[in-house]
Simulated scan of single mutants.
Amino acid sequence: MIQTGPIVLVDPARRERRLAELRHRRMLLGGLRDDVDLAWRALAPADLDGSWRSAAQRGYSERRRELADGLRRACRDLDDAQTAVEAAIAAATASA
């Protein structure tokens, strides 16, 4: 990168490497997001209130809810990460 006052000239090869890295990161985040979403959906609460009576069964159900909540938060965090990567790609592309 060469800085000349307020104008910054970016080495095209460096920019292309950065774009390739960001695109790869976007692909990885998308796959991970899909996997976490699938796991979250598998833990979605089922209507088992009437048949689950023992303390162990209630504890199991509560733990599943906690895991599902954690996976939902992870999905939101991954969405935020994907948004940040998309913004970085747009910024790098605009600097061309």
Score class of each variant (00 low, 15 high):
residue 1 M to V: 12
residue 1 M to W: 09
residue 2 I to H: 15
residue 2 I to T: 15
residue 2 I to A: 15
residue 3 Q to G: 04
residue 3 Q to S: 13
residue 4 T to P: 04
residue 4 T to Q: 15
residue 5 G to E: 08
residue 6 P to Q: 12
residue 6 P to S: 10
residue 6 P to T: 12
residue 6 P to E: 15
residue 7 I to F: 11
residue 8 V to L: 06
residue 8 V to N: 06
residue 9 L to A: 14
residue 12 P to A: 09
residue 12 P to M: 07
residue 12 P to E: 01
residue 13 A to G: 11
residue 13 A to Y: 04
residue 16 E to P: 08
residue 17 R to E: 12
residue 23 R to E: 10
residue 24 H to Q: 15
residue 24 H to I: 00
residue 26 R to E: 13
residue 26 R to T: 08
residue 26 R to K: 08
residue 29 L to R: 10
residue 30 G to K: 03
residue 31 G to L: 10
residue 31 G to F: 09
residue 31 G to K: 00
residue 32 L to G: 02
residue 32 L to P: 08
residue 33 R to C: 03
residue 34 D to G: 09
residue 34 D to Y: 04
residue 34 D to Q: 13
residue 36 V to H: 09
residue 38 L to C: 12
residue 39 A to Q: 09
residue 39 A to F: 06
residue 40 W to T: 15
residue 41 R to E: 09
residue 45 P to M: 10
residue 45 P to L: 02
residue 45 P to I: 05
residue 46 A to P: 05
residue 47 D to S: 10
residue 49 D to W: 04
residue 50 G to E: 10
residue 51 S to L: 14
residue 53 R to C: 07
residue 53 R to H: 11
residue 53 R to N: 08
residue 53 R to S: 09
residue 54 S to F: 02
residue 55 A to Y: 01
residue 56 A to E: 13
residue 57 Q to L: 12
residue 57 Q to V: 04
residue 57 Q to F: 09
residue 58 R to E: 00
residue 58 R to A: 02
residue 58 R to D: 05
residue 59 G to C: 00
residue 60 Y to Q: 13
residue 60 Y to F: 14
residue 61 S to A: 15
residue 62 E to D: 14
residue 62 E to M: 13
residue 64 R to V: 06
residue 64 R to S: 02
residue 65 R to D: 07
residue 66 E to C: 06
residue 67 L to N: 05
residue 69 D to C: 09
residue 70 G to D: 01
residue 70 G to A: 04
residue 70 G to R: 08
residue 72 R to G: 07
residue 74 A to R: 07
residue 75 C to K: 00
residue 77 D to H: 11
residue 77 D to S: 11
residue 77 D to C: 02
residue 78 L to Q: 06
residue 79 D to H: 07
residue 79 D to I: 04
residue 79 D to S: 06
residue 80 D to R: 11
residue 81 A to Q: 12
residue 81 A to G: 03
residue 82 Q to G: 13
residue 83 T to W: 10
residue 84 A to Y: 07
residue 85 V to F: 01
residue 87 A to L: 07
residue 88 A to D: 10
residue 88 A to Q: 03
residue 89 I to N: 04
residue 89 I to L: 05
residue 90 A to C: 02
residue 91 A to Q: 01
residue 91 A to W: 02
residue 94 A to F: 04
residue 95 S to L: 00
residue 96 A to Q: 10
residue 96 A to P: 01
residue 96 A to M: 03
